[in-house]
């Protein structure tokens, strides 16, 4: 229930960003990119960024992986981000932003398996280098608060057996943590 509420708030936040960001736009600039660091972590990802105003843009990143580097790890997440470009024009030089994320994960580490969802909100910042007219390199990072709710159980165990009888299986671990929201080296291509 709590998780649903949090998910609901996260979605509302994204919608609010979209509404706030959709102000007068000179020309609809659209860029696509990918985070090289994530690729290095064998996590395919894609980012789409839409300029929403003279100094603002909205980016949506999606990433997911299955057994990266042979590790017992699976995840899938999205991260909307609203950027305010301090240089005065979108998609050039420095920016600050607000980002949220929602991710599901399932990994085993040591003799424990953890399966759950995490969502969060935080602040970001970065610098974009215009290498050519269309090609850009963005270095960015961010930090935020994450709420997680997960099932923690022994590796190889059947989690449902932890709940005898008709008791529904529920998460047995949750919490809030301050986490790095983002640490990216993103290559982007401005489509138009």
């Amino acid at each position: 229930m709590k998780m649903k509420r949090i998910s609901f708030y996260a979605i509302v936040a994204v919608v609010l960003m979209l509404i706030c960001g959709s102000r007068e736009v000179c020309a609809q600039q659209l860029a696509l990119g990918t985070d090289a660091l994530m690729i290095g972590a064998m996590t395919p990802n894609a980012t789409a960024e839409l300029v929403t105003g003279e100094k603002t843009s909205l980016a949506l990143s999606v990433a997911g992986n299955i057994k990266p580097w042979g590790m017992d790890f699976r995840s899938l997440g999205i991260r909307p981000e609203f950027k305010l470009w301090l240089s005065g024009r979108p998609m050039v030089r420095e920016y600050i932003g607000v980002a949220g994320f929602l991710t599901s994960y399932d990994f085993s580490f040591g003799n424990k398996t953890r399966t759950g969802m995490a969502e969060g909100l935080g602040v970001t910042g970065g610098y974009l280098f215009r290498l050519t007219e269309h090609f850009c390199l963005e270095l960015s990072g961010g930090v935020g608060m994450m709420y997680y709710s997960q099932k923690v159980y022994g590796k190889g165990d059947d989690y449902s057996q932890y709940f005898p009888g008709d008791e529904p299986a529920r998460d047995n671990s949750s919490g809030v943590a301050l986490v790095p929201l983002k640490c990216s080296v993103t290559f982007m291509w401005i489509l138009r």
Binding site: C26, A27, Q29, R89, M91, V92, R130, T132, E133, H134, I190, R192
Partner: peptide, 13 residues
């Protein structure tokens, strides 16, 4: 140079 680049992208190239 950068001004020209960003100007282009602002104005749909």
């Amino acid at each position: 140079k950068e001004y020209t680049q960003t100007q282009k992208s602002r104005l749909n190239y």
